[in-house]
């Protein structure tokens, strides 16, 4: 478990004078389940944007496995196995889940640029897509346009699309955002079912869920890492209580 899947060192990013990422260094071991917590505006989503290349850091380094990917474009990072989901549904409203996931699978297999073959001839991709959808219990909804799916199903599709890229490292930005507490269990059951080969870093506000699923927790405040530790350490940490848990959250 000491093999590092993803790491950042000295990552900095400013918007004007506002520090959104200040000297962020962290290591995500292979197969780990890490939670990233912190109050709103702490820079959690910004960190995911930096890691996936949707934002360029002012300085610092991002390493995937043993490879420096700081200058690698977002789509190439996905191909190398660094994949994310979005806090706000970022789906294809008029495609069916089957089409959307098939697209992602075709892309990974290098078939999505092929214009001379008909889509149904990509049987392996379609079967794989359906397999992913079924595993997230979206199989029976895979023929309806995405925009007609229930919100919770759309959240699951977020994860399905990410899994289609066969990630080595999966960054989940509030997978249960907007889902009622009583239904978020199903989403996290899906997260828990993700292959243990995949390293997962997830942002989540619900402390109960965080303490249940994370092996380690990283706490961010104002663009900086405040502390990192096991759930027990975090729960016992005075400063965390002050800035975060103390605000009546637990």
């Amino acid at each position: 478990m000491t093999e590092i899947a993803l790491s950042t060192s000295g990552l900095n990013k400013k918007f004007g004078s506002l520090v959104v990422a200040g000297d962020i260094s962290l290591e995500l071991p292979r197969g780990a389940r890490y939670a990233l917590i912190g109050p709103n505006g702490a820079g959690k989503t910004t960190l995911i944007n930096l890691m996936t290349g949707m934002l360029a850091p002012d300085s610092g380094k991002i390493t995937l496995g043993t490879e420096d990917i700081t200058a690698v474009p977002p789509d190439v990072r996905v191909k190398r196995g660094l994949v994310r989901t979005f806090q706000i549904n970022t789906l294809f409203p008029n495609l069916t889940p089957l089409e959307a996931v098939t697209l992602a699978v075709c892309e990974r297999r290098g078939e999505a640029g092929v214009w001379w073959k008909s889509l149904p001839s990509c049987k392996a991709a379609a079967d794989e897509a359906y397999g992913i959808l079924s595993s997230l219990r979206l199989g029976e909804h895979c023929e309806r346009p995405t925009k007609q799916l229930a919100y919770g199903q759309q959240r699951l599709l977020e994860i399905a699309l990410a899994l289609a890229s066969k990630p080595k490292v999966l960054l989940l930005d509030e997978p249960a955002a907007g889902v009622p507490k009583e239904e978020s269990g199903e989403l996290f059951a899906a997260v828990a079912g993700i292959s243990s080969d995949i390293s997962v870093l997830f942002i989540e506000h619900d402390m109960e869920v965080v303490f249940r699923f994370a092996s380690r927790i990283i706490v961010m405040v104002s663009g900086r890492i405040l502390v990192e530790g096991t759930p027990d350490e975090i729960a016992a940490n005075e400063r965390v209580r002050e800035v975060y848990l103390g605000s009546g959250h637990v």
Binding site: E99, T102, A112
Partner: peptide, 13 residues
């Protein structure tokens, strides 16, 4: 084709 599907993907998001 798969390419056509990726065009629709660009249109959608």
């Amino acid at each position: 084709s798969p390419f056509g599907l990726s065009l629709r993907g660009m249109r959608e998001n």
